[in-house]
Simulated scan of single mutants.
Amino acid sequence: MLGSLFYALHVLGAVLWVGGMVFAILVLRPALAVLEPPQRLALHEAVLKRFFLIVWHAMPILLLTGYLLLFGWYGGFRGAGWHIHVMHLTALLMAGVFLTIVTGPWREFRTARARGDAASAAVQADRIRLLIVMNLVLGLLTTGVAAWGRFGG
């Protein structure tokens, strides 16, 4: 029963993180074009603040439940299939990209916005977008690997 709870938390964390990136890149960003640049940057800041807070909680839950499942269900790396190894690699890469975002361009974006430097904030928003796209690709790859590998593919 505990394994089912860990698995459910793991899947929910992945849905929140990957789904949030899909929404941010494919829905929100194109819709922002209707706003003037100052409004666009303000909305970017508000949305990313909330989204990054969700990821800041989902990411450790994903990693923790992943390791609990790896060692509790599969008996460690030796007992895990190829898909678990790929998910482990992509999870670490995604965590690294997220930490890069929040400690680099996100911090610089907020600093630029606070001092009223819209041009610098826009540059950082674009850096954030590129890194989120990178993480989205990794997240979709991870989801595909999870689904494919789960059934012995």
Results as ranks from 00 to 15, higher is better:
Asn135Asp: 07
Ala42Gly: 12
Pro30Trp: 03
Ile54Tyr: 06
Leu130Ala: 12
Val102Cys: 04
Val34Pro: 10
Gly149Asp: 12
Arg129Asn: 14
Ile25Met: 01
His88Asp: 09
Ala80Phe: 05
Ile54Leu: 14
Phe109Val: 09
Val137Leu: 04
Met1Val: 13
Val123Lys: 02
Gly79Gln: 04
Val137Gly: 09
Met1Gln: 08
Ile25Ser: 05
Ala42Gln: 10
Val102Asp: 02
Tyr74Arg: 11
Asn135Ala: 07
Ala95Trp: 05
Phe71Leu: 09
Gly79Trp: 02
Ala114Asp: 03
Thr90Ile: 15
Phe98Glu: 01
Gly76His: 04
Val86Met: 03
Ile101His: 00
Val22Gly: 08
Gly139Pro: 10
Ile61Lys: 03
Asp126Leu: 12
Ala114Cys: 08
Glu45Ile: 09
Leu28His: 03
Val133Gly: 12
Ala147Met: 15
Leu93Tyr: 03
Trp82His: 13
Gly144Leu: 03
Gly75Trp: 01
Ala24Leu: 10
Leu89Met: 11
Ala31Arg: 15
Trp56Ile: 08
Phe77Cys: 03
Tyr67His: 11
Leu68Arg: 08
Arg50Gln: 07
Asn135Ser: 10
Leu89Glu: 02
Ala95Lys: 01
Trp82Gly: 15
Glu36Lys: 10
Arg40Pro: 13
Trp148Leu: 14
Met21Cys: 01
Trp73Ala: 15
Phe151Glu: 10
Arg127Tyr: 03
Leu138Gln: 01
Ala80Pro: 13
Gly96His: 01
Val11Leu: 06
Leu64Asp: 01
Arg115Val: 12
Thr111Asp: 08
Ala121Arg: 02
Leu53Cys: 08
Ala146Met: 11
His10Arg: 07
Ala122Ile: 07
Gly149Ser: 08
Ala147Tyr: 13
Gly76Ser: 09
Gly152Met: 14
Ile101Asp: 01
Arg129Asp: 08
Ile132Ala: 03
His83Met: 05
Ile101Tyr: 09
Pro30Cys: 02
Leu136Trp: 03
Val123Leu: 05
Pro38Asn: 00
Val133Cys: 11
Phe23Lys: 07
Phe151Asn: 14
Leu32His: 03
Gly96Ile: 07
Ala91Arg: 02
Tyr7Glu: 06
Met87Glu: 04
Val22Ala: 01
Met1Arg: 13
Leu64Gln: 08
Leu130Tyr: 07
Leu130Cys: 09
Val34His: 04
Ile128Val: 10
Val102Thr: 06
Glu36Tyr: 06
Arg110Glu: 02
Asp126Trp: 00
Val18Trp: 01
Ala31Val: 00
Phe109Ala: 05
Gly79Ile: 06
Leu138Tyr: 07
Met134Ala: 15
Gly75Leu: 05
Gly149His: 05
Leu63Gly: 09
Ala33Ser: 13
His44Cys: 11
Gly116Leu: 11
Pro38Thr: 07
Ala112Pro: 06
Pro60Lys: 01
Thr111Ser: 14
Val15Ile: 15
Ala112Met: 00
Ala95Cys: 11
Thr100Gly: 15
Arg110Lys: 11
Leu26Thr: 15
Gly75Ala: 00
Arg40Met: 14
Thr65Gln: 03
Ala119Arg: 07
Arg110Asn: 12
His85Cys: 12
Thr111Ala: 15
Phe51Leu: 11
Pro60Tyr: 02
Val15Pro: 05
Gly144Val: 14
Met94Ala: 08
Ile54Arg: 13
Ile128Ser: 02
Phe71Met: 01
Trp17Asp: 06
Leu141Glu: 02
